[in-house]
C-alpha cells in the first residue's frame, strides 16, 4: 500500500487501538507495524507527538529490573479527537468510493 495512505490514517489507528485498551510502547509498535505493515520508526515519534498534544497519556510500570515500561491510554481529549477523525475518515472514504464507483 502507498506509504502516504498509511501515514494519513496512522493517527486515527493509534487512537483507535488505545481506545480499546491501554497498551505498552512495545504493544503499540508491534500491533501497528504488523497490521499496517509500517516501520516502527514512524509509530514511536507519533506516540510522543500525540502525548505532547495531550491526546494520550501514560503510566509507568516498574518491574524488578530493567527500564520502566510506559502504558499508554487515551485521554478525554484523545477520545474526542478519535471520534472526529473517524467521522472525517468515513466521510472521506464515502466520497472516494463515490468517485471510484462512479
Amino acid at each position: 500500500m502507498n506509504p502516504q495512505f498509511k501515514k494519513g490514517v496512522l493517527e486515527l489507528c493509534l487512537l483507535h487501538v488505545l481506545e480499546a485498551k491501554p497498551l505498552t510502547t512495545y504493544d503499540v509498535l508491534a500491533l501497528l507495524s504488523e497490521r499496517l505493515d509500517i516501520n516502527e520508526n514512524t509509530v514511536y515519534p507519533l506516540l510522543r507527538r500525540l502525548e505532547s498534544e495531550t491526546l494520550i497519556t501514560h503510566e509507568k510500570q516498574y518491574g524488578e529490573m530493567g527500564a520502566p515500561r510506559k502504558v499508554y491510554l487515551l485521554t478525554e481529549k484523545g477520545q474526542q479527537e478519535k471520534t472526529k477523525l473517524k467521522e472525517e475518515w468515513t466521510e472521506f472514504m464515502s466520497r472516494i468510493n463515490d468517485v471510484l464507483g462512479g
Binding site: N39, E40, A67, R69
Partner: peptide
C-alpha cells in the same frame, strides 16, 4: 533511550530475538 530500552526488553521477554528485533527497529 529509556523508552527504547523498555521496548527491546519487552520484545525479548515476548520471545523475539534481540539482534533481529533491533534490526527491525531500523
Amino acid at each position: 533511550v529509556e523508552d527504547y530500552q523498555a521496548i527491546i526488553e519487552e520484545a525479548i521477554e515476548r520471545g523475539e530475538e534481540e539482534t533481529e528485533f533491533i534490526q527491525k527497529l531500523g
